[in-house]
Design a binder for these strands. Structure first.
Lengths: 209, 209
DNA sequence: ATATAATCTAACCAATGTCAAGTTCTAAAC
DNA sequence: GTTTAGAACTTGACATTGGTTAGATTATAT
């Protein structure tokens, strides 16, 4: 929660770290009032500053939302690394773990997760900040796949293509559980892990006899 | 494009089929002005009627959007049936075809596709119209899986779980191609079909050697 | 002829994004 | 230690837009 550099004074005219306070505030609004109520003004209100203060930290409304997405991507990555380092697992189990972390994150932070994949954050010509923030995980997954190929566990083939396949499965499950027909299954822990486990197993060992 | 029952007179006071005209108008606005500009007023404007006229056909703004989602689900289903009936394919190829149709629909109708999976259209307690409209495809897929199990092609196991897995793969690919890191791959026909083909093949035959 | 559905005009009100101009604090220069 | 420049905020105002309701008006259908 608390960041490192700035001294967040409690009551001074200058906030100390309004930028990240606004991001937090915006996230809170997202949950307390819903996506449609998220506005620069609402975030400012929630952070206890004037409605125009945000313009010293964000170019416009979209920038604030992008900042939320970036922060969320970073949190996901952190969570991923934590799981990755903590556990002493086979590489195969590691992949399962990645899926669990991904979906858990989506279910625990649904509003942020949706923002992470808004179309306005992708541009043909340039890599946006949001894209950059998401890129790391992708590369990490490719590495893992490559390692699995080298140790002879996985089939040959373009590792990126396989990584994409894995991600698509995670992502598809996550989104269907969040906003699709699987949202009822996602209400219980058992329901969701069952879905994950069977999906991973199918993908690992195939559907065709 | 033109529906069956009502006579869409061109210039009378009574429109004839304003309801579906508004849906069409709203879809047009979606593409011409973007999601954020979609409003009841904009739809009415585009349909050439007064801004209050919509209230005789839709309870509120959300209902109009829901109607778009329902219509889109129906179109997807129709497209699916068409592909399903036309082609004389093995059941396995049929699944590949379903994936292609699904993703093609998403890429050709990105705006509608996004609306089809808005969280506000799912409720814990009741089946919403949008949900009902999406349900058919799901059942169809389960049937197909069951058939594949019976003919001994697919592994045993809960057919629904397998169908979910397939859907998640399609859906994950579609969403990542639309609003995720794969959106650059989706720009060309070859790029997208390559992704689909390899994903299906991986899922059919497994990633583990 | 009459009831009623479909449409229109008008108006209200609540928001929001954004800019402009003034204030208050911080920090660096002297 | 004082001055001073500039950054961080505030208040106020503008223009836009949108959802929604109320009360006519016009067409359709019985």
């Amino acid at each position: 929660m608390s960041s490192s550099k700035p001294k967040a004074s409690t009551k001074s005219y200058h906030h100390g770290d309004l930028r990240s306070a606004l991001i937090q505030a915006a996230r809170a609004v997202l949950y307390e009032e819903g996506t449609s109520k998220l506005s620069l003004r609402a975030a400012a209100r929630h952070a206890g500053v004037s409605h125009a203060a945000a313009y010293h930290h964000f170019k416009d409304k979209t920038s604030l939302i992008a900042a939320i997405a970036v922060e969320a991507f970073n949190e996901l990555q952190a969570k991923r690394n934590k799981a990755y380092l903590q556990e002493d697992l086979t590489k195969l189990k590691r992949i399962q773990k990645m899926a669990e972390v991904y979906i858990e994150f989506a279910l625990e932070n649904p509003q942020e997760f949706r923002l992470m994949f808004l179309p306005e954050f992708r541009r043909e010509d340039v890599l946006t900040d949001v894209e950059k923030a998401g890129r790391q995980s992708h590369l990490q997954m490719i590495e893992l796949v490559t390692a699995l190929q080298e140790e002879g566990t996985f089939i040959e083939g373009n590792p990126e293509s396989i990584a994409i396949n894995l991600w698509a499965t995670f992502h598809g499950l996550a989104t269907l559980m969040l906003d699709g027909p699987l949202f009822r299954n996602a209400k219980t822990q058992e329901g969701s892990t069952a879905l994950i486990t069977s999906a991973i197993s199918h993908l690992f060992y195939g559907l065709v006899k």
